[in-house]
Amino acid sequence: MTTLKKLFRSGLLPASALALSLLAPLSALAADEYQPVPDKDPTTIAANPFIAGAYGFIWVALLVYVISVARGLGRANAEIAELKRKLGS
């Protein structure tokens, strides 16, 4: 505690705090300047499987539904033909 008071009174602590507050934005700016710009946005890489997955799911769901309806229709028509044959005989 006394060491802190001494540092504050000597002006070293306030000066250091001032220096840090001034340097912080500069260091951030410097870091931004030296950051390599990614040639591809990371979200582009992440998004593509999700977009393809969404469309793929719709295709699969529709295909399964169409196949199930077509099979049901085929079965029903076959049974109708069978019953008509029974009625005719």
């Binding site: 309806v69 077509a70 049901g72 229709l73 029903a76 049974e79 019953l83 008509k84 029974k86 009625l87």
Partner: peptide
């Protein structure tokens, strides 16, 4: 696509109704 699926599925429903009617006719017969 919805209209196409609606018509396709509607055919199945009609066929099932026809099947039920025919099944009753066969029983009566």
């Amino acid at each position: 696509l919805w209209v196409v699926l609606f018509v396709l599925r509607g055919h199945l429903e009609k066929a099932r109704d026809e099947l039920d009617t025919l099944a009753l006719d066969v029983e009566d017969h």
